[in-house]
Design a protein around this nucleic acid. Structure first.
Lengths: 205, 205
DNA sequence: ATGAACACTAACCGCATGGTTAGTAGATGT
DNA sequence: ACATCTACTAACCATGCGGTTAGTGTTCAT
């Protein structure tokens, strides 16, 4: 609960930037390997080749380090998915892009997966708190689904919220599977999920 | 590492049975409320109104307590789902029963949900290990899907494994949602999931 | 040459953890 | 009556935790 170095603004040294980036990196690796629970200050420090005190010199607390790692991951994810959605021409295409974007990103950055999924319920002592996680993480997708419905691309009887929740769960599940079985074909799985979406959402023809 | 009381067989005292049942009960509550991480020996003890040493008198280790709690939950779940599946007439009906059974049980026993889902990745230090969890939890459902395919109830192009994984993820997601929003209509969600299954799995007509 | 800022280390603090040990009150069997 | 077993408690132990403190070597502007 003390300094933590540049409490406000103050542009960072080159060294500081490098260290922070390194700490974020090793923290992501650590969480990927041992989960949030197994990610102690000690371990972060020795993974970076410095002491605990040095870590706390750069970040005010362990929570701050983890927070930084989490933010890095989330930023990467949202940018990737956002870009894909922006490219989509139709509302229904945006939903597809969301699904493929999420699965694609997770497949490409397996280390980031655990950081995200474990943040959804572990929190409490890691203190992420502001996360878009738990309560309404289905919101963005549900909005996309709603838009596609409004555009007449989906049948009117479709429940946007539950569809979004189910889709989200399906995405998590295939990604998790690819984590335990590196041979699992994520691209094919994404096709299956999108196909399922089309079969259930599109109007009878 | 030491005794832990009746290491082998030895029928249990009435008192012992009652205590063990109580310990399992409070442990489930504790995990539901604070997760595996927040479930210390101390907390278990004081929730049961005894000392740490008394807990260890009944169970060899904290791991053993958690293990017992986990086993209790899993047993309840499998029995419930198993009974429903046994009642189903057709292979496709068994798949529906599995889906509705899981969602129904989780909805009826919200305290048990966290015990199960958090066991899937938290493990490591709780030492559940033998759990049917991570690697192939989709197996049973995939077998059911495969059987329905073989019976001609599902289209031949359906990928049983990915279908099972996606279905499992969808189930987890709607159950998780009902945990954060107690007003969420789980029965309706189960209908949506089953409907989605039918639309994607059944042959064109 | 001097003083300040930077980037760190070694040692320490208090606390919570899982688990052990010695002892004990009460029931039960002989 | 005495011994045994049951079901516990109070006190303790080592370990690992997040975090603090005092000090140190290096760099750099003046």
């Amino acid at each position: 609960m003390t300094t933590g170095r540049p409490a406000r603004a103050r542009q960072l040294t080159f060294t500081e930037q490098a260290r922070r980036a390194q700490l974020v990196e090793v923290t992501i690796q650590l969480i990927a390997a041992h989960g949030y629970a197994g990610c102690s200050l000690q371990r972060i420090a020795e993974a970076a080749g410095i002491t605990k005190a040095a870590v706390i010199y750069h970040y005010a607390s362990k929570r701050a380090v983890i927070r930084a790692a989490y933010d890095t991951v989330i930023t990467g994810l949202t940018e990737h998915v956002g870009a894909l959605i922006a490219q989509a021409a139709t509302p229904a295409g945006q939903v597809d892009a969301y699904v493929r974007g999420l699965i694609g990103y997770m497949g490409a950055h397996p280390d980031h997966v655990r950081v995200i999924v474990e943040a959804l319920d572990d929190d409490h002592d890691t203190g992420i708190a502001d996360r878009p996680g738990s309560p309404e993480r289905w919101r963005p997708l549900a909005d996309l689904v709603e838009a596609a419905k409004a555009a007449g691309a989906y049948r009117a009887t479709l429940d946007a919220r539950t569809t979004a929740i189910v889709l989200g769960g399906a995405i998590d599940a295939v990604v998790a599977e690819s984590l335990t079985d590196r041979c699992y074909d994520l691209r094919a799985a994404a096709d299956v999920v999108v196909d399922m979406l089309h079969r259930t959402a599109l109007p009878p023809a």
